[in-house]
Amino acid sequence: MARWLGQLLVLAVVAGVALTALATPASAHGQLAMSTPAKDSTVKEPMERLELYFTEKPAPNAYFTVTTPSGARVDEPWSHGQPKRLDEPVTEYNLIDGTWQPNLYHTGFPAMVPVAYWPEQGLYVARYISVASDGEKVTGEVKFTYKGKMSKPPKGWKAPTNEPDPALLAHAEPSTAPSSAPSAGPVLPATPQATPQAASSNAPQAGSGFDLSVWLLPVLLVVGVGLMVVRAARRPSPRGAEVRKRPTGPPGKAPRGRPATASRKPPRGARAVKTAKRR
Score class of each variant (00 low, 15 high):
R49C: 11
E51K: 08
A116Q: 06
P154Q: 07
M34K: 08
N94Q: 09
D87A: 15
Y93T: 05
A33T: 02
R85S: 14
E56M: 09
N94Y: 07
K137N: 11
K155T: 04
H106P: 10
G156C: 13
V43L: 08
K152T: 15
W100C: 01
P60I: 00
K152Y: 10
Y63V: 06
R127S: 10
H29R: 10
P25Y: 03
Y128I: 07
P25H: 06
N103L: 15
W78K: 04
A72K: 14
R127T: 10
F109G: 02
P58R: 01
L86N: 06
K147T: 13
K84A: 13
S27L: 12
A38V: 13
L104F: 13
N103F: 10
A132L: 04
K39T: 14
A28K: 00
S130D: 07
Y53T: 03
T20P: 05
E56C: 09
E48F: 03
P37K: 03
R127W: 11
S151M: 13
A59Y: 01
P83Y: 08
F109Q: 05
S70Y: 05
P46S: 07
P58I: 01
I96M: 04
S79P: 07
S130M: 08
S41K: 11
Y128N: 00
A15N: 06
D75I: 03
T68S: 11
K149Q: 15
G16L: 06
K155D: 11
T91A: 10
T36Y: 13
Y117Q: 12
D97P: 03
S35L: 08
G71M: 11
M150T: 15
A18D: 09
E136Q: 13
T99A: 15
E76W: 00
E136I: 02
D40I: 09
E136W: 09
D87F: 12
A26M: 04
F54L: 03
K44T: 14
G148S: 12
T24D: 04
R73T: 03
P58S: 12
P60F: 00
Y117F: 15
Y93G: 02
I129H: 02
P114G: 10
N103A: 14
M47Y: 08
E45H: 11
E120D: 13
A116Y: 02
R85V: 12
